[in-house]
Write a protein that binds this DNA or RNA. Structure first.
Lengths: 346, 346
DNA sequence: GCACACAAATGAAATGTTTCAAGACGGATT
DNA sequence: AATCCGTCTTGAAACATTTCATTTGTGTGC
């Protein structure tokens, strides 16, 4: 029960007890190599004995910025972003930094709130998947001199780093695979088409069609309200109403695909027997579905990691002449049961 | 491009420009009602114009503690904990606090690291699901006078608050349901039996057996290595090797259940036709499985919320005579297709 | 015109670190 | 003995805020 009474023990108390100056205690903590061994040991012992813990806020005050990077994602309920967070956290810890993970839940208001919070905390930088397609929130944020890196979004102008995945290519991979399985028509289940992701994946699908000489009309588009399982279920129901019944479905993310799968299953439609299904993201639950889902894998962990690394590079020591960079990672098709041995459509 | 050159604008700059003292600026920000309206407006205008943002670290330094509560969970890949986090975040924001979510990944080392980090940050308090069953990490943490609340764990001695769910009751709910469906034997797929959760749910299941006059031997126990889908798949394979084939399976969490479901599906075993399956937690993916899972719902959001509220109460203004409290929430059985109309076993 | 009350504004102290120029100490070189 | 050098150590300044005991200002009642 040390410290229950009285105030917190500070560097001064340690200095007094160890019979040295505060500067020396600070050196023991931050640059032990420049303190004589005997002194160092003595101070260390006192630190232990008193249970001294450095106060980060004072440290930050002096340093002018914190040792935290912020990660602002669209949807923590989506395992994809959890994976991104893991990657960012890994890179941050290697650099001795902490990560503050926040969920904008796609709300502009929440996003703005959090950006304000980050500014007050003088975070080292922000990794962000903007909810704000127009960029107004971020525009205001620039004033604070806090660098940010876009995650899972390409940024047109070169005023920030970005890490994204080639979504057009991802769509193409899915399209080629389905066409190679003999399908001549594909239903594309997307989320809101404002999202660049949804646009790009569609474009990629159409590119695959073009490659194989299929007309754009071979794509039937169902636009779901949100990128979640419930919306996927709805989309699945709508899909079942189409006649003749589609034989191939490509979903803009795995949550939608799981919803569609459920709807198909409930209607007694066999996957992949009657309908082939491709998802996107390759979250763990895609592989874990009753019928393991074929999915376009996004390197989520690597994306989070790369984004954090870019930020650390930008805010590091010799970061005078930092050039913003765009990293585009490549997706990968993971074939599983949900597109295995489909019955070619006429 | 304000502030790109020169240093950060502080309260002093605002004071100078507005022709008032720093104390007044501080008052405008923190207790606007004690500043004359005209002054207030003038200061506000300058704040806007200069883009002043309060520096949290200085504020904290003065206050002695931060405005952040930490949440340390076992597994962020488990949607259950994501939901807990959401609940905690909600309560925290209502109190004007931030939440720092961290993932111990069940590693004692990570847990210790994070606790150290929290101490340095002088967090307001910690909500924790200890990875450390023995409590050594937390024992050391007590020295820092940082209060904590146990989440999803009951604490025997009364030296901290806790919020948990009655796991024995949950096991009983599952057991009664399966017995009512005519099953006379149940396979219990658990995670590591050191975990109190796994013990309690088993105890609950046995209690249901006892109620109905079934012997304890009617329970076959499969202990999985971890509480995740892959382990569930393994458990499913082991389960299929049992002869005669079990007709009812109760899993200690939904991830395990999804793994089992997949294994059964791959083997062509019909759920619920041949085997009834009950999970635990009722994560979103349980309802979203191809065969929607019957599951024991834990009020995860409420749990996170209640925990944060307890902490806020403990660290609030009039918290002199705080009495530690234990809140035990009740689970609820959500019946879905995976246990519907099973074929009674002999 | 004086005392008093009240509101509003002030300015200095305090918070716990890090950093850095300067000082102290010993030993080696002249 | 004086000088220099290198290694350790020191002590004070700086960081940006909040708080609080004072001061200033203004109107009111006598």
């Amino acid at each position: 029960m040390v410290g229950v009474v009285g105030r917190m023990v500070g560097i001064k108390d340690v200095a007094r007890q160890a019979g040295v100056s505060v500067g020396t205690v600070s050196n023991v903590i931050n640059r032990p190599e420049m303190v004589a061994e005997t002194t160092r040991d003595r101070v260390q012992a006192v630190i232990e004995r008193l249970g001294y813990v450095r106060q980060e806020s004072a440290r930050q005050l002096r340093a002018g910025r914190s040792r935290i990077i912020a990660l602002l994602v669209l949807d923590m309920a989506n395992p994809f972003f959890v994976e991104v967070a893991r990657g960012a956290e890994r890179a941050a810890r290697e650099a001795g930094l902490g990560v503050m993970v926040c969920n904008s839940a796609q709300s502009l208001e929440e996003e703005a709130d959090y950006l304000g919070l980050f500014a007050e905390h003088r975070v080292r930088g922000v990794l962000v998947t903007p909810a704000d397609v127009t960029g107004t929130n971020l525009e205001g944020f620039r004033r604070h001199d806090i660098p940010f890196v876009f995650v899972d979004r390409e940024v047109p102008s070169g005023d920030a780093c970005s890490v994204s995945v080639d979504d057009v290519e991802g769509g193409t991979l899915a399209g080629r695979h389905l066409i190679a399985q003999g399908h001549r028509s594909v239903v594309y289940v997307s989320g809101p088409m404002q999202l660049p992701q949804c646009q790009d994946r569609r474009a990629g699908l159409l590119a695959a069609f073009a490659e194989e000489g299929l007309p754009a009309e071979a794509m039937v588009h169902i636009e779901a309200e949100r990128l979640d399982v419930a919306s996927g279920r709805d989309a699945g129901a709508r899909l079942l109403g189409i006649s003749p019944r589609p034989t191939a479905v490509f979903c803009a993310n795995d949550l939608l695909a799981l919803g569609v799968l459920q709807a198909l299953f409930a209607a007694g439609v066999s996957v992949p027997g009657e309908v082939a299904l491709v998802g996107y993201d390759d979250i763990e639950f895609a592989a874990a579905a009753a019928v393991p889902l074929t999915s376009v894998r996004q390197p989520a962990f690597r994306m989070g990691r790369a984004a954090a690394e870019l930020l650390i590079e930008e805010t590091g020591e010799g970061a005078d002449g930092h050039q913003h960079r765009r990293i585009v990672l490549q997706p990968e098709l993971v074939v599983r049961d949900s597109t295995f041995a489909p019955r070619p459509a006429g």
